[in-house]
Simulated assay, not measured.
Amino acid sequence: MMEDRILFILRRTYWVGNTRRQDLVDAFNLKNPQRASEAIDKALKLYDKYLERWGARGGVTWRDGVLPPPEAAPGKIFALLQQGAPFHETGIRTNTELPVRLQYREAYRPDDESLEMIMRGILEQKLTRVLYVGLRRREVARWRWIVPRSLEFTGRQWRLLGFDLSDDTETLKSYVLSRIQDIQYDTPPRGQSGRVQQLHERPLDYKGGVYKVDLNDNLTPDQRIAIKQELGITGTNLQISDRDVYEFMRLYGDAEPSSEIVWPPVTGIRKLETRKD
């Protein structure tokens, strides 16, 4: 806990310019302000290269001209902001000091019991049976035997990656967690134990390969620079996982969804009037 408070002081002091005892009291809900003073004293000793005493009430300020260590660097703080990290982790009040709006709601996640089964299925190499519904036309939920291998987060969806025992191609597939209706552990079908173990142990390759990207001819030079930065394109090349190419082209290109898929799932949206009594 003391380490968390010291890290808070380091980050807040660099970004806001100073840290007061009240900041620590607010961030960590301290009942005794003396605990805040103790944290400030330890931070001053540990990070004396960066911090110095400030104010009559034992606050801390940043030494002029000193660059921050990695723990408080812009990239680290930005990553925390992107995750929606709370005040006691970032050191910055994101409701008043540096307002941050995270678009869209938090990605769906199942109840704790289902989450534990999904996670332990991967950790303990358990053959997992899931009641899953995809978006193929006229599809209904059906049971699938999955060799679970990994979790994937796209920023909007959590997915379970695994091998479907009914798929002879043994292609790594994704199962959106919000579409899993039930989950159970199971034993391998007769004669499948060796195959299941092999799929559990198969190395996963997320790197994919290098793809040549053709940008729209109507983009201006400045727009081309901006799009390359946004998408991580170097020259004309993009390093991307093979499994992500279709989704990449659906978001940024002209890929048409398969005719077998119900797409788009949303066909309209309208704001409802708020009733005033």
Rank of each mutant, 00 (worst) to 15 (best):
D4G: 10
R5M: 10
I6H: 01
L7V: 03
D23V: 03
K31E: 06
Q34Y: 04
A36H: 00
K49L: 13
W54G: 07
G55C: 10
V60S: 02
K76H: 14
Q82P: 07
Q82E: 15
F87N: 04
I92N: 05
R93F: 02
V100H: 09
L102A: 13
Y108R: 10
E113T: 06
M119D: 15
L127C: 02
R129Y: 04
R136K: 12
A141G: 13
W145C: 05
R149I: 07
L151V: 07
L151M: 14
W158E: 14
L160F: 06
D164A: 05
L165S: 00
L165F: 07
D167E: 08
D168M: 11
L172I: 12
S174L: 05
Y175V: 01
Q181I: 09
D182C: 02
P188R: 00
S193T: 11
R195D: 10
Q197R: 14
E201G: 05
L204E: 09
K207T: 05
K207I: 09
G209M: 10
N218S: 13
N218H: 07
P221R: 04
Q223Y: 01
T236K: 10
T236Y: 03
T236P: 04
L238M: 02
Q239I: 12
Q239M: 08
D244I: 01
E247V: 07
M249P: 05
E256N: 08
W263A: 13
W263C: 05
W263M: 11
K276V: 13
